[in-house]
């Protein structure tokens, strides 16, 4: 159920994000979700795509500073309180969330989260019958 997220180290240089995205679009890879965390020095681009392994090797092949890290993607209903309750399950289980971002997919809200204790996070998901996305699920998108 784990998903390999691609993280890219982006220098603060004009046009760099465009260059990275072009590498993927030229190879018909679809961006499923993306977020950029930025500082004054550099940015970190986090990506989910329609083909993570191929996207990763393309970026590596172009000498981009990138790596894969395991994240979890959970589907929640687009209604008031669903985000709050989803996060509360993890908090109750004592699981730290390193970072998180959201995107929407087929009318559902998707929460992507990174934790240092993935095994425990899966226990929470199973116990609470939460819906989650697998990496294969992104292939058809």
């Amino acid at each position: 159920m784990k998903i390999n997220q691609i993280s890219v180290f982006l220098e603060n240089k004009f046009g760099r994000l465009n260059e990275i995205l072009a590498i993927l679009s030229e190879e018909n890879i679809k961006i499923v979700a993306a977020t950029v965390a930025d500082t004054s020095e550099y940015g970190i681009l986090r990506l989910l795509t329609s083909d993570q392994q191929r996207a990763y090797s393309l970026l590596k092949g172009s000498n981009v500073s990138a790596n894969l890290s395991e994240v979890i993607a959970i589907a929640i209903e687009p209604c008031i309180g669903s985000f709050s309750s989803a996060v509360s399950y993890f908090t109750k289980a004592g699981i730290d969330i390193e970072y998180m971002y959201c995107f929407s997919l087929n009318g559902k809200a998707m929460l992507v989260l990174r934790t240092n204790n993935i095994a425990a996070a899966y226990d929470v998901i199973r116990k609470n019958n939460m819906n989650y996305m697998k990496e294969e699920d992104m292939m058809g998108l």
């Binding site: 997220q5 993280s7 890219v8 180290f9 965390a37 500082t39 550099y42 970190i44 986090r46 500073s65 990138a66 790596n67 890290s69 390193e98 970072y99 990174r114």
Partner: peptide, 9 residues
């Protein structure tokens, strides 16, 4: 290096 880890960088 794990480039997604802001704190590490």
């Amino acid at each position: 290096v794990r480039v997604d880890d802001y704190a590490l960088l």
